[in-house]
């Protein structure tokens, strides 16, 4: 293998890192907010049906088709072309981000739901008898416990979203994968280029894995530290 070629390609692909990080971070942020909303929606009967249908559709279909549907499909509707959102929905960046947010929300809402279900009833009752309001119980007891419970599954979801951002390269965006794809069609030296790109993604995912272990230890010290009785 040609090391200087790999080095050149590595640097070239790193040029797409800001876009990858941007889409990754924003889709996780938007997805988390929407996921919280979906779980709040589930407190009403109709809302529960709506949330279930949403999750069913977005988890049951490939992300790629969701991206294409938003990027190519929405333009077919006159009311969208004439709406204030059109300047955004015309751009591949916003379409890609929107698809990632919607997709992440479906998975994250299920992870959060699992976490919420695992909160012990007694911990909530103890909050109620001490006079806490619903909001205080949510903020001080339910959410902290649910988030701790959901953390391992969520760290997998964070890594899944990193990998998911690679799909925006199919709608002309020049993220790391988009740059790699372009470089392949110029040079036809696919193996070196793809391995360089893969190494960067792998490094990022390993950082997340380490980070999540660290956060888990910080948030749930009772699971790791042993004190003498």
């Amino acid at each position: 293998m040609d090391l200087s070629f790999i080095g050149t390609m590595f640097l070239r692909i790193l040029g797409g890192l800001p876009l990858t990080l941007n889409l990754w971070g924003l889709s996780l942020l938007g997805g988390a907010i929407l996921a919280l909303g979906l779980n709040l929606l589930r407190t009403t009967r109709v809302g529960d049906k709506v949330a279930s249908a949403y999750v069913f559709v977005f988890r049951g279909t490939p992300l790629l088709i969701q991206i294409f549907m938003i990027y190519f499909g929405l333009a077919g509707f006159g009311f969208i072309r004439h709406s204030v959102l059109w300047p955004f929905l015309r751009e591949p960046y916003w379409c890609g981000l929107l698809a990632l947010v919607l997709n992440d929300a479906a998975y994250t809402s299920e992870i959060l739901r699992g976490g919420l279900r695992a909160v012990p009833r007694g911990a909530v009752e103890a909050g109620r008898v001490s006079g806490m309001s619903r909001f205080t119980i949510l903020r001080r007891i339910t959410l902290p416990l649910a988030i701790r419970q959901a953390l391992p599954a969520y760290s997998s979801e964070v890594i899944s979203m990193l990998k998911a951002t690679a799909l925006v390269s199919t709608i002309t965006l020049m993220d790391m994968t988009g740059i790699a794809r372009a470089a392949i069609s110029e040079t036809w030296r696919a193996v070196e280029i793809l391995l360089s790109a893969a190494a960067i993604y792998l490094a990022l995912s390993l950082i997340v894995t380490q980070l999540s272990v660290w956060i888990e230890r910080r948030l749930s010290p009772w699971q790791f530290q042993r004190t003498n009785r």
């Binding site: 007694g122 911990a123 009752e125 103890a126 001490s130 205080t136 001080r140 902290p144 948030l219 009772w222």
Partner: peptide, 30 residues
């Protein structure tokens, strides 16, 4: 509820808070 103390059969301490934090939780946040 603020004028009552309630002790449960299964203790129902908050698992994510230390002993001291369990005791000061309501005085601080309620």
């Amino acid at each position: 509820r603020c004028q009552l103390g309630f002790v449960f059969q299964n203790f129902n301490l908050w698992p994510h808070r230390t002993v001291l934090e369990n005791v000061i939780e309501a005085p601080l946040f309620v």
